[in-house]
Amino acid sequence: MAGIALDHVLLLATVLFALGLAGVLIRRNLIFMLMSIEVMLNAAGLAFIAAGARWGQADGQIMFMLVLTLAAAEVSVGLALLLQIYRHLRSLDADAARLLEG
């Protein structure tokens, strides 16, 4: 770490995670909720990379790649579900799908 303090990277990861969490909580549009989840996963990956760089180990990047895999799987299933919800309800409002009926 040539001068970049671990604290600052973790602070950045925390801020990004908080922004993503706020996005999930305040937005009702499903596309925006999925985007916010991506931001949160990305912040978690940033924390892993920062820790890996701090101790000079490759494990941080490996964990980031696993997070990346998870994000890809999550977004594909999430967007497929979103398409189904839109076809059934003609709406992207999360509250429109609160009854969980097919």
Binding site: L12, V15, L19, A22, G23, R27, F32, M35, S36, V39
Partner: peptide, 8 residues
């Protein structure tokens, strides 16, 4: 941070 704020 700025771009993420604009996203949400």
């Amino acid at each position: 941070v700025a771009a993420t704020f604009m996203v949400i």
